[in-house]
Design a binder for these strands. Sequence first.
DNA 1: GCCAGCGTTCAATCAATACTGAACGCTCCG
DNA 2: CGGAGCGTTCAGTATTGATTGAACGCTGGC
Lengths: 163, 163
Amino acid sequence: MPTDPPAAVSVFIERMGLSAQADGLPRIAGRMLGWFILHGGPASLADLAEALEVSRASVSTNARVLRDLGVLEATARPGDRQDYYRLADRHYLPMLEGYVERMATLRDALATAERDLPDDWRDAQSRLVDMHRFVDTARDHTRDLIERLRRDDRGPPEGDGHG
Amino acid sequence: MPTDPPAAVSVFIERMGLSAQADGLPRIAGRMLGWFILHGGPASLADLAEALEVSRASVSTNARVLRDLGVLEATARPGDRQDYYRLADRHYLPMLEGYVERMATLRDALATAERDLPDDWRDAQSRLVDMHRFVDTARDHTRDLIERLRRDDRGPPEGDGHG
DNA sequence: GCCAGCGTTCAATCAATACTGAACGCTCCG
DNA sequence: CGGAGCGTTCAGTATTGATTGAACGCTGGC
C-alpha cells in the first residue's frame, strides 16, 4: 500500500458526524457526508456500509435523508443495477437552507402570537414585533447569501487566498 | 379576570420550546424564553417554575444556560434576596452566534483535514478547500450581520412597517 | 420460473440527555 | 444562635430518537 493515512480520514469523518449532530441530523448522515467529501466518486450503499462499518439499514435511511436535503445525488451506472450516490454540486447549501427553514418556523410562531394575542399585551406585542423584525432580517440576509453562492459556481480558480 | 387569553400564550410558549429544541437547546430553555418574551419583566426562578409547571431544578439549570448564552440577564432588586432574571437587550443575537460557532467548528475540521491529509488525495483536497471557502464566506457573512444588528440598537421607533 | 442480490421497512434495542425529587449550603431574619 | 427560604447540585427516572437485525418486495440473471 503506497498510502495509509486513515488516521486523518477517520478523524475527519467522525468530526463531520458530530458536526451533523449539532445541526440536528443523525450522526451517520454526517459521517456519510464526510466520506463523500474525501472519496467523492459514486458509491453504492453497500460500499458505504462497509466503509463506515454501519448497518445497511442506516445507510439506506440516511442516504434518503441526504438525498432529500440535496446533499447527495443518485446516479445510474449502465450495466449495474445498484444505486450509486455522489456529492451534489453545492452540497453545503442545504445547511444554510436549514437555518432559513428554522427561522421561518420561528417567524411563524411570532406572527401567530402577534395575531392571536389581545392588544392589551402591549409590551408583549412590542417584544414580539422586535424579534419578528430581527428574524426577518436574518432570514432575508441568509437567503441572499444562498442566492449569491448559488450564482458564482466556484469563483476564481485561484488568486487571493485567505479571507 | 378581565383578560383570559392563555390559549395563544401557551401555544406560543410551547412553540418556542420546540424551536429551541431544533436549535439544540433544552425545550424548557425555549419555553422560558417564550415566557419572557410575553411577560418580559424581571421574574424569580420560583415564578418561572410555577408559571411553566416545571421543577425548580430545571429552571435553575436552564436559567444558567440562557444567562451564559446572553439571552437572560440577572438583576437585583433592593430589599429582595431572590435572583431575578429579565430578557437581555438583543436576546436573539445568541442564536446567530450559535450558527457562527457551529461554522467555526466545521471550519476547523476542514482545515485540520487539509493539513493532515497527504497531497496524493488531490480530489479530496479540492473538495475540502471548496467547502472551506464556503464555510468561511457564510461565517463572515453572518458575523457581519451580527455586527450590524448589534449597532442599530432598535432602528426607527416606528414608521415604515414591513421589510 | 426459480434463485440471488440489492434496497427498503419495521419492531426492538440501545444510547443520550432532558427532567425531576431530594439533599445540601448559604444568607438573611428573628 | 436557630430557623426559614432560595438556589444549586446530584443520582435516578423517563423520554426521545438513532441504530440495528430481520423480514419483505423487487429486479435481473440463469
